[in-house]
Computed example of a mutant assay.
Amino acid sequence: MTTGVPTPVTGAGPFRLAWQRRRRSAVRFWAGYRTHRAGLVGLAALTLFAVVALTAPLTVGSDVAGATDAPGQPMESPSGEFPLGTDRFGRDLLGLLVWGSRVSLLVGLLAAVLSVAIGTLVGVTAGHFKGWYATVLMRVTDWFLVMPTLVLAIALATVMSRSLGTVILAIGVTSWPTTARLVRAQTLAVESRPYIERAKALGGGHGHVMSRHVLPNVMPLVLAQATLMVSSAILAEATLAFLGLGDPTVVSWGGLLQEAREAGAVSSGDWWYLVPPGIAIAAVALAFTLCGRAVESVLNPRLGVDR
């Protein structure tokens, strides 16, 4: 017998509903992202770099950096055996370039995550609490903004031990102010909305308001800023390695440029020692920038970024 009462849908719990909303959001995001040709080019390039980095132990081996059993003669020009020539120790530069992609991408990603995390924490708390707390945080942020980031990173890397952790820390703790400023402005805009007042009136504390209402609304900005920060972090890592402040026990693109400088590749015209690492750094930085601009345009259509 039909009573006219709708039968409740089984299995539609809160977790399933949340997953469905996230899935629809991801589909909408991809539909918007794939309309950006430059963003697709950047994504394809990053996919290629990621595959090359992940498969490096299989394609070039884990002992490519060993100088004791180098397969070639020092500073050989490109040939069939060594497509990119050899370095000053006789090592295959193509293998070093492939292996160096792992370090450069890893340092760039981790440094960008650290920088964006610090900037998000400072920006959200400064925008929420206001008063003297926000004033102090913003004055510290302004101080970091007026100081050259590279100089601060060099100073920090100089006084600490030479390791990948030091490079990541030096880049991360000196490049967060821009993110903090952007996140604070977005937090102030979110805090002015009526539902924030209702949440506070219903007893929502500071942690509830920041984690459940403010942070989800600033995450699109944080995501776009993170993709843009990776390219800056990779360039900063290459600069520190070129100045001799990186980890001497690992191979990176910046480290290859530093070794080329020490070997006198510039004065002797050994272009194969300089050009490939430089092109790799420029290409991956450009790819992350293209992806970041596309993500920023999709998440904030008002920007009107060219496609």
Rank of each mutant, 00 (worst) to 15 (best):
F49S: 03
L169T: 15
G264C: 03
F29D: 10
L58C: 01
R184D: 03
G172R: 13
A287C: 08
V5I: 11
F29W: 13
W271G: 10
T166L: 08
V183F: 05
V173A: 15
A31G: 13
E76F: 04
L17C: 10
A18K: 08
L145R: 13
A238Y: 01
V107C: 03
L137W: 00
R193L: 03
A65T: 12
A287E: 00
V218G: 08
V51Q: 11
V122P: 02
L145F: 14
A44Q: 14
D92N: 11
G264Y: 07
T174I: 09
F242G: 00
T35Y: 06
H213C: 11
E81Y: 11
P220A: 14
E191L: 01
G244P: 05
V9Q: 02
T158V: 15
V251E: 04
A50N: 07
D92T: 14
G61L: 06
T10F: 04
T120K: 01
F15Q: 11
R181S: 12
Q20L: 13
R37I: 11
I281E: 06
L94H: 11
A111N: 04
S101M: 09
E259T: 05
S192T: 09
A153D: 05
A180T: 04
A111C: 03
P277S: 09
G119D: 06
Y33K: 05
T125M: 02
L109V: 11
G131P: 06
W132L: 11
A287D: 00
L245V: 08
L114D: 07
V124G: 03
L182G: 00
A283G: 04
G80A: 03
L182Y: 04
